[in-house]
Design a binder for these strands. Structure first.
Lengths: 263, 263
DNA sequence: CGGTGACTTTAACCTATGTTGCGCGGTGGG
DNA sequence: CCCACCGCGCAACATAGGTTAAAGTCACCG
């Protein structure tokens, strides 16, 4: 994976915010500065922040995957959110006194810590940026709602295919997909905790998915030969990702890696 | 239910925001003005806003119950959020171009519409109010996460008792409970759509709840004889409601209707 | 090169929850 | 006053998904 030099659009956060509104060069530079502010690294499976702790900074995923999770007294565990590169933890968390959930690294993880002051300074100077960040925050809420629909109403097969579909589209929006493929470091155990299933049943379900040749996962890389078929199988309605500005359509293959759009 | 005269603390939104930070008399007056701005009424089961429509205003529940819901192509329906009196739809919704879900009235409903301009004017003049509204918004997200835990990891019995517990505590925080009782207009069908269960199983589960004498529902009034027992049965951890400021504790019976606190 | 641990697969069996369908009682409209 | 409808309860049966346990695969490591 060759990393292009100083082009801002390699920054997955900028790529994502661009889905909402074109940022100016200054806006982009401001994001870059925020991302570089104070970098923090975690090993896979480490906790970034624990339930009960006081939130002090906004965190931004520069690289790697993480998740929010909760558990019940008796140990049952539920993943309630997924952070992909370019994702942002809640704006304004400072307002709360205490975390009500954990954030844990799934893979090796690089985070940027953004202080309240740096954030306020940046958004004051770049109102368009602030708008984009609100958009991001509302999309996060929309994803949570879609996950509720997933857990409450979809079958195991639909839940997992829906999840795979969402991950692919989110990564593509962050400039992290190439063609029909993207990185995929999730184990079946984590998928079980996301989908509210047992690991055994996740395994069973993956066989069915393989049988229908909807998805192929090998060496931590996921390939989706026919995204429309996958979307149909999972009853996937992309509206909740709110990516459709400029008349863009998700089923158009409009993000072919790092190639510039033809428009 | 006698309505006391002009006391601002009858406003459920003010009551709720007071859980986060004491508002000044001016802040309260500003909230009152927002609530009175433009009132809109709906009959039970009407839709307030539909998927695909453009969000233009912030809405505030003055009276009645409503819910957010989504559905799948084949008709399966999932309620993904509950609005109780004093609840607020998402700040900043304007940023999105299109609703990804429905909002529907459960009971007869009175809403206040707050325009973007009125909102900005009020929060500019009352920064403490803005903070409280962010707190509210973060609590809404926290509730969504807890619901994910509910659907993904709890049994039917736990899901329903947890829901009842949450409703009671939220109503109490809005000054809408009296002693161990509160209004309760939900049918078993709606509870089924919230909990991701069939109506038949909701009915079965309510029998078990009745057998254990955890909750009594009669004439649209719910009574919880022993909230600690109910919390234990549902593995309820109140931290996600973020009500605990000032060392307040939820298990203290600290909101006995409209009586002033003893402190 | 063999060992250890993390992940996945498989099989047998179990149970929570879904489905269908019917009956009952209250309530509101004509 | 009666009918229709809605919300609820109940029973019989069907099934998706959970549980337990054992074995297979692979990658890394000493």
């Amino acid at each position: 994976m060759p990393v292009a030099p100083a082009s801002p659009s390699n920054n997955p956060l900028i790529r994502r915010l661009d889905n909402y509104a074109r940022l100016s060069a200054e806006d982009r530079a401001a994001v870059q500065r925020l991302c570089a502010e104070k970098v923090q690294r975690f090993a896979a499976k480490d906790d970034v922040i624990r339930e009960g702790e006081e939130p002090r900074v906004i965190r931004l995923v520069v690289d790697g995957w993480a998740c929010r999770y909760k558990h019940l007294e008796d140990g049952r565990r539920q993943v309630v959110g997924l952070f992909l590169p370019g994702d942002l933890c809640d704006l304004n968390v400072f307002v709360l006194r205490e975390m009500d959930h954990f954030v844990g690294a799934i893979t090796a993880l690089t985070l940027a810590q953004i202080t309240r002051d740096a954030f306020e300074e940046a958004t004051l100077a770049h109102p368009r940026l602030l708008q984009s960040l609100w958009w991001d925050s509302l999309v996060t809420m929309a994803i949570q709602r879609e996950w509720l629909l997933n857990l409450g109403s979809r079958t195991a097969f639909e839940r997992i295919t829906h999840l795979l579909c969402e991950i692919f589209l989110r990564l593509r929006a962050a400039g992290r997909a190439r063609g029909q493929s993207c990185e995929f470091p999730l184990t079946q155990a984590i998928i079980a905790d996301i989908a509210g299933l047992s690991t055994v049943h996740v395994s069973r379900t993956f066989q069915a998915i393989r049988d229908e040749r909807l998805v192929e996962i090998r060496n931590r890389v996921m390939t989706i030969p026919d995204i429309d078929a996958l979307m149909a199988a999972s009853l996937f309605n992309p509206n909740y990702l709110h990516l459709s500005h400029e008349g863009r359509h998700l089923d158009a293959n409009d993000a072919p890696g790092d190639v510039a759009p033809t428009v």
